[in-house]
Amino acid sequence: MQSLTTRSKVASNKKMTFVEKLYLPAILGGMRITLNHFFKKKVTISYPEQTRPMAPVYRGQHVLKRDENGAERCTACGLCAVACPAEAITMTAAERKPGEEALYREEKYASVYEINMLRCIFCGLCEEACPKEAIFLTDRIIDSGYLRKSFIFGKDILVDPLDKPIDVSVRETKETREFKTHPEFAHNKLNTKSLK
């Protein structure tokens, strides 16, 4: 029978020779291997001090971006929640009151926006579905926690901090914006005015 790979070996039950029966050469061989490893370069990465290099398009913790005036882009349309295969996103819409124009870009906004990070599979479909370029995945890693409820991230964690906005230029490129103008995504009408 022809073997599938060249690596296969025919098992043999041949009698061990005297030297093999002594086991000592085999033991010494094994000990030589472990001693070699003793002096090898260690593979450990001491985590908080050192970090593993990350792909530029790594999909980690989400951010809800603001526009250039600092108003939230999200209009609580719910397309991200619909697109989410893990059903991790929930939101409650609310109407913007007069005087809140600096806070929310359009008349409708999300008063509650929650992502369950235990359900999220970080696929990035929410980002792709978003017509307002509001949600993005970033290269931040979700911290571990002791309680399940600590993994339900609300707006307090998700919304882009005003003082130091999170950089999403790697993911919000010209190509991705052009991609969304494709006729297939006609429902995702892009607000090109605010996204120069």
Partner: peptide
């Protein structure tokens, strides 16, 4: 043990 297993 760690060194022989390439750990720290």
């Amino acid at each position: 043990a760690a060194f022989m297993q390439d750990r720290i």
